[in-house]
Amino acid sequence: MKAGSNLEKVLAAGHFAVTAECGPPRGADPEPMRKKSVHVKDNVDACNVTDNQTSVVRMSSIAGCLHLQAAGVEPLMQMVTRDRNRIALQSDLLGASSLGIHNLLCLSGDHQAFGDDSQAKNVHDIDSIQLLQLAKMLRDDGKFPSGKEVKGPPKFFIGCAANPFADPYEIRVSRLALKVAAGADFIQTQCIYNLEKFERYMQDVRNRGLHEQTAILAGVTPLKSAGMAKFMKKNVAGMDIPDEVIKRIAAVPKEEQAQKGIDMAVEAILRLRQVEGVRGVHIMAIEWERKVPEIAKKSGLLPRPQV
C-alpha cells in the first residue's frame, strides 16, 4: 500500500471503483458541504473535492475534504497548479496528509481568465505532471526536491486527469504514458459521451499496456436536459458530445429529460464496465449530487465493498 486510502484498497482488491465529486461552496458556511456528503456517503469509495474549479473562488479543497471526512466520506483532494507555487503546494500536501487526506488529484486548473478574478497572477510554477512527481517524491523517497529529508512523508494515492477527447488526438495516449511514467496511481477521465471514441482510445491505451500500470476511472456526467448538453458541447473546451446523444435526450419531453439523462448515464456506466482496462467510474453529477445514489444503484455498483 502506498497511502492506504480506501480508494487504493478497493482498487488493489480488484473491485470496480466508484468516485464522485463535490464542489465546495462560495462561502464559509460548511452546511452545503455537509448536505452534499449525505448523497455520496456509502455510495462511493472516495469523493473528489474540487479546487476553485472554473477559477471561481470557493472554500478551499482541504477544508472541503475535512467536511466530507467528518461526515464519513473519504475525500480525494484536487489540487491545481494555477494558484500556488511549489512552496505552497508542498506545504499543503504535508498539511493535508497530516489531517488524514490520502487521495490526491493533480491538475493544472482552468485559466483564471474564466473566473471572477481574471486580474489574478497566473502562477504555474510547476505543471500537473510535475506536481504528481513531486507528491510521489515526498511520499516514496521521503525527500524534498532539495534532497533534504521529509520528517514524516505524506501519504497520497496520487492521480491525475486525462481527456481522451481534447486536441490533438494523436498525442492523447502519449500524454497518458507521460502521466504513467510520472507515477500516476490512478487516472480520472473527462466526461465520456462519445463511447466509440473512448473505446478506440482504450484500445490504443491497451496496446501500450498502460491500463496495467495505472487504474483508469472513466468519467460520467449525467445530462440534466438537452439544453445543458448543447451548452456544454458549445462552451466547455475539450467536451465531446455527439449529436446522437443530444438527439436522444431531446427526443423526450422536457420534464422527462432529467430522468433520461440519468438513464443514459447508467447505460454509459454499464458499457464502460465492459471496456477492458477501465477499473472504475468517476461520477461527476455537477450540482446534482443527490442523483449519485440512484446512478450508482441502477448501475449495480452498490453496496460498495468494505475493504
Binding site: 482552468d110 510535475q130 486527469a161
Partner: peptide
C-alpha cells in the same frame, strides 16, 4: 497560457487555447 512543460491541457481545441479562440495553443 499556463506555461506548461507537459502540455497540452484538456482545454486545447482545434489548435486554439482555452482562454481565447484568437490565441493559438502553444502546445499544438
Amino acid at each position: 497560457s499556463k506555461s506548461l512543460f507537459h502540455g497540452p491541457c484538456g482545454g486545447s481545441v482545434e489548435g486554439h487555447c482555452e482562454i481565447d479562440k484568437e490565441v493559438p495553443c502553444g502546445w499544438q
